[in-house]
Structure formats: C-alpha cells, structure tokens
C-alpha cells in the first residue's frame, strides 16, 4: 500500500525513470532520505541558482529555504491529488502551472510579511518556478505516490534544501561580514573576508563543501573495504 519510490540522484535529475519499489517502510523514510542521503543540494546537485545567489546572509537563506519548502509541499499535494486525471502528454505543463501558482502566492506572502526580505531576494523568489528540485520531485515522486507519502517526500527535500542553504549562509555571512543574521559575532577587530559575500565566494564555499563531502565518503568507503 504505502510503497515509496527510491530514486537515484541521476534518475531524479532525468526525472523520467520508473521507481524501483524496494522500500516498504513508507512515510518516515521518504522524509529522512531528503535530509542527507539524497540531499537535493549536496548529493543531487540540483537547484544551484538560489543556493549560490541568495546565501550571502543567513536571513536571506532562511527565507529562501522556507519559501522553497512551501512551494515544494503545496505543489506535491496538488500534483499527487490530480495525478489520476491529468493526461500524460500535458503533465509537465500542468506541473509548471501548479508550481508557478504557488510561487506567486509565496511571492506576495513574503512581500506582505517583510518588504525588506522581498527586496533583498529580488527576482530569486519568482525564479523558484524554474528550480529543478521542485519539478524533479513532482515528476519523479508525487506523480506516482499518494498524498501522504508525497508530502513527506517534499517536506524532507525542502528541509534538506533549507539545511544546505543555511549551511552556506552561515559560512558566507560569518566569514564575509563577521556576523550571523545581522548580529556581529567576532567582535570589532575582525577583518571580514569580503570575497565570501561576493559572487566568487559562493562558488568557492559550495565547491569546498562538496570537496569535503567527497573526502568524507571516500574515507568511509575506504574503512569499509
């Protein structure tokens, strides 16, 4: 009944493979896999644009993470609920329309709650539409599973994405401006590494994080063998 799809990163990227139904535990596993094992940013390397663009402060990262999670969960519900009567040929167009609707909702909601957050994120809230994580999960998971499983999967992916984006935000803001969410943490003698908040720093931090994860995985598999 509660079969859940387990997709490899490559499969999720291509978003067009048949899930192998190996996992019988359901719910909780769908939720947990997004956090680390199939983390959308570090493992699947999806949705790179917002990850690099808005992580110059912790606040921006947090707002972006929450907005993306909201769109992920809401569109997972819609896609899963309508999956039996959407014709196969027009499904991608339908998914994009569903996603665009919820992104518009999120855009106006952020504008209403905090105008300054909306201003500093700029066009990147609208650009959640083309974040491939959302379309990828809609196609690879929600279109094949029930509402409950889809929500768990979307929530896991969303929180995994928020975790990754916050990690970059914390590193970049603390090194680049010596503060966290606007509160100074290193005292007045700290000389900020300006490059960290500039575009170049985003590439470097993400590059070195992936390098660290690679190193960790290599070491772990080395111990096993």
């Amino acid at each position: 009944m509660s079969n859940s799809a387990h997709n490899t990163p490559a499969a999720a990227r291509a978003a067009s493979t048949i899930p192998d139904l190996v996992n019988e535990k359901g719910g909780m596993d769908d939720f947990l896999k997004g956090l680390w094992k199939e983390n959308p940013v570090f493992v699947q390397v999806l949705g790179m644009c917002p990850v690099l663009a808005v992580t110059n402060t912790v606040t921006n990262s947090f707002v972006m993470g929450v907005a993306t999670t909201f769109v992920l969960v809401m569109s997972a519900i819609m896609v899963s609920a309508t999956r039996s009567f959407i014709p196969k040929q027009v499904r991608i167009a339908t998914y994009i329309l569903i996603i665009a609707t919820f992104v518009t909702v999120a855009d106006y909601a952020i504008k209403a709650v905090s105008l300054s957050a909306h201003r500093s994120l700029g066009a990147f809230i609208s650009l959640i539409v083309v974040n491939c994580i959302i379309l990828g999960r809609a196609e690879a998971f929600s279109s094949r599973n029930g509402i409950k499983d889809s929500v768990m999967d979307a929530l896991g992916m969303g929180i995994g994405f928020t975790f990754a984006i916050l990690m970059l935000g914390v590193i970049r803001e603390s090194l680049g401006s010596g503060s966290l969410a606007g509160i100074p943490i290193f005292g007045s003698n700290y000389e900020p590494w300006v490059i960290m908040v500039l575009p170049g720093g985003a590439f470097f931090v993400l590059g070195f994080l992936l390098l660290g994860i690679n190193a960790m995985n290599t070491r772990r598999s080395g111990v096993k063998n």
């Binding site: 390397v45 170049g200 720093g201 985003a202 590439f203 470097f204 993400l206 590059g207 070195f208 992936l210 390098l211 690679n214």
Partner: peptide
C-alpha cells in the same frame, strides 16, 4: 562538480 565550482569561483 567540486573542481568546476572552484574554477567558476
């Protein structure tokens, strides 16, 4: 991806 990102930086 790691080295591509560092080059991009």
């Amino acid at each position: 991806t790691a080295i591509v990102l560092i080059i991009a930086g």
